[in-house]
């Protein structure tokens, strides 16, 4: 199982990195653009509320960040903290579900109509 699992995690890590590169670029450009008109919660919400495109974009962003960050944490835990693989796997799933859950909640909060 080990070979397949490690190869699979590597693919997810790489693919999520590519997604993040795209998402972060869009996110930063949007920030710079949005700030020109003065930054306020009302202004942000007027753009995102009920907007399905922004919801899809930020859902993808959250998913990629949760996958990428948690796989990275697993490696850090094994290499720097000397954790066993099984323990590091638990950390990975905990971090992934935590990030995905909190992120999904945030996405819902800004796009709900």
């Amino acid at each position: 199982m080990s070979a397949r699992r490690e190869a699979r995690l590597w693919v997810v890590q790489r693919a999520s990195a590519a997604l993040l590169a795209f998402c972060v670029a869009v996110h930063l450009v949007t920030i710079v653009y949005a700030v020109r008109g003065g930054l306020s919660a009302a202004e942000v919400l007027s753009r995102t509320r009920g907007n399905f495109a922004w919801m899809a974009f930020y859902a993808l962003f959250v998913f990629a960040a949760a996958a990428h960050g948690s796989i990275g944490l697993r490696t850090v835990a094994m290499e720097w903290l000397g954790w066993k693989k099984s323990t590091a796997d638990l950390l990975m799933w905990f971090a992934a579900s935590g990030l995905a859950g909190l992120g999904a909640q945030a996405v819902y909060a800004v796009v709900r109509p």
Partner: peptide, 15 residues
């Protein structure tokens, strides 16, 4: 790394 993609894509377990 690229070559081992086959393991993922074809689901080969080898064990």
């Amino acid at each position: 790394k690229r070559a081992t993609l086959a393991i993922v894509l074809r689901g080969e377990d080898g064990e």
